[in-house]
Simulated assay, not measured.
Amino acid sequence: MKKVTIIIIAGGSASGKTTVATKIANEILKDESVSHISMDSYYKNFANLNFEEKQKLNFDHPNSMDIDLICEHLDKLKQRESVEMPIYDFTKHEQSGKTIHIEASDVIILDGILSLHVEEIRKRADIKIFIRTDDDIRFIRRLMRDTNERGRKLEDIVDQYLTTVRPMYKYFVEPSIDYADIIVPYYEGNNIAIDLIATKIKSLVNKD
Rank of each mutant, 00 (worst) to 15 (best):
S105M: 07
D156S: 15
G151Q: 14
F51G: 00
Q160I: 07
S82Y: 02
V34Y: 01
H93K: 07
A104Y: 02
N48Q: 14
V20E: 01
L77M: 03
K202Q: 12
I157R: 07
S176E: 06
H36P: 01
E53S: 13
V173A: 08
V118H: 02
K3I: 00
D134C: 03
K54G: 04
I24P: 00
D156T: 15
K3H: 10
L154G: 07
S64W: 01
N45W: 04
N190R: 10
Q55P: 00
D89Y: 08
R150N: 09
F51R: 09
M1P: 08
Y161W: 13
T19S: 13
N50V: 07
D181E: 12
K2T: 05
I113P: 01
C71M: 06
R138Q: 11
I28W: 00
H117L: 04
M65L: 15
V158M: 11
Y42T: 03
V205F: 08
V173R: 03
L162T: 08
Y161L: 08
M1A: 10
K30R: 13
Q55E: 15
E32Y: 04
Q55V: 02
K92Y: 04
D156R: 05
G112Q: 09
V158H: 04
L74N: 03
D89C: 11
G12F: 02
N50W: 08
K128Q: 13
L116P: 04
N50T: 11
I129T: 03
I100E: 14
G189R: 06
L77Y: 00
I137L: 12
Q55I: 03
A180R: 09
Q95W: 10
L69A: 05
D135H: 06
E149V: 04
E119R: 10
K56I: 04
E188R: 11
I67H: 07
Q95A: 15
S33N: 09
S15E: 02
Y186S: 10
F172M: 12
V4G: 01
K98V: 03
V158A: 13
F139I: 04
D31K: 09
K153L: 15
L114M: 10
A25Y: 01
D75P: 00
I67G: 05
I67V: 15
A10W: 01
